[in-house]
């Protein structure tokens, strides 16, 4: 059972790896993609500088760095639809593959890449805006980036399962989701600014807890506090994964009953 699941994910991850190698060479990844993302962080940070509040500048730098992992894992919404264009959905449906596991493996290139880009953004940009990291904080931040990427990715898979059905709207879906997450996860607008229902809803976003953890590390929070934030983030990620798992099953079951999805 477990080994079959692992095989499925591993097999699908081959697609992820190959797709990544077709989309980027290490040069275009480094000088194109990474530089673009770092510019985005710097751009947000300059807003903080313009506002003229050093504390808020740090707040925004950290927020913008974590948003990188949101932006990058959001790519999974589109890549989930790639099988539709390849005409392989019908074959997947006919095979014993568990669709949720397949799609989890299929776009793993994004959380993998996001782990690296977010780590670099967190470690490299904030020092220019008055943050100093001590050596022991480096592995902690990389760990947060990895978990945040994976949890955020699980959430995106749910969006991907929706985009699979409404594939014409896949970019709209990811754009709107990115907007909402950017607004409500506490990246640029402090959470307490929002009314309670939104604050509660924001708890479902892995990015909210990732930011909490990063800010705790920066502000000298205790290990227990950091671990609590991470625990909440991983819980949210697992919950999203479960939703995605059943959502993909539902999409495939519905497709079998009726529409043209599996053509």
């Amino acid at each position: 059972m477990i080994s079959r699941a692992a095989t499925t994910v591993r097999q699908a991850a081959v697609l992820a790896r190959v797709d990544m190698s077709v989309i980027y060479t290490w040069r275009t990844w480094l000088f194109g993609w990474l530089v673009r993302l770092l510019c985005q962080v710097v751009f947000y940070s300059l807003i903080g500088v313009l506002v003229g509040d050093p504390e808020y500048t740090v707040y925004v730098v950290l927020g913008a760095a974590v948003l990188i992992c949101v932006a990058e894992t959001m790519m999974a919404t589109a890549s989930t639809c790639w099988d539709r264009h390849q005409g392989t959905l019908g074959l997947l449906a006919a095979s014993p593959i568990e669709p949720g596991l397949f799609f989890f493996g299929r776009s793993l290139q994004w959380p993998a890449s996001a782990t690296v880009t977010t780590s670099i953004a967190l470690l490299a940009v904030p020092p220019f805006f008055g943050v100093t990291w001590s050596p022991w904080q480096v592995p902690v931040l990389v760990g947060i980036a990895a978990l945040a990427s994976l949890s955020g990715y699980c959430m995106t898979l749910v969006l991907g399962s929706v985009a699979l059905v409404f594939s014409g709207a896949r970019n709209v879906i990811s754009t709107i989701a990115t907007l909402y997450i950017t607004a409500f996860c506490g990246a640029v607008v402090p959470l307490h600014y929002w009314p309670a229902p939104i604050r509660w809803a924001a708890q479902a976003l892995p990015a909210t807890h990732a930011l909490e953890a990063v800010r705790l590390v920066e502000g000298g929070g205790s290990a227990v506090q950091v671990l609590t934030a991470l625990g909440l983030m991983v819980t949210a990620g697992l919950a999203w994964f479960t939703v995605a798992f059943f959502s993909f099953r539902l999409v495939f079951a519905r497709a079998r009953a009726g529409n043209r999805l599996l053509d």
């Binding site: 081959v14 190959v18 005409g87 392989t88 019908g90 997947l92 006919a94 095979s95």
Partner: peptide, 28 residues
């Protein structure tokens, strides 16, 4: 085992070997 005709239904970015390995894996 199923074979649907036409030129869709293969992963274009994968090699022939990778395609087959993928589906062999899918079937356990």
């Amino acid at each position: 085992g199923i074979v649907f005709g036409g030129d869709k239904g293969a992963y274009d970015r994968l090699t022939a070997r990778q395609n087959l390995a993928f589906w062999a894996g899918a079937y356990g």
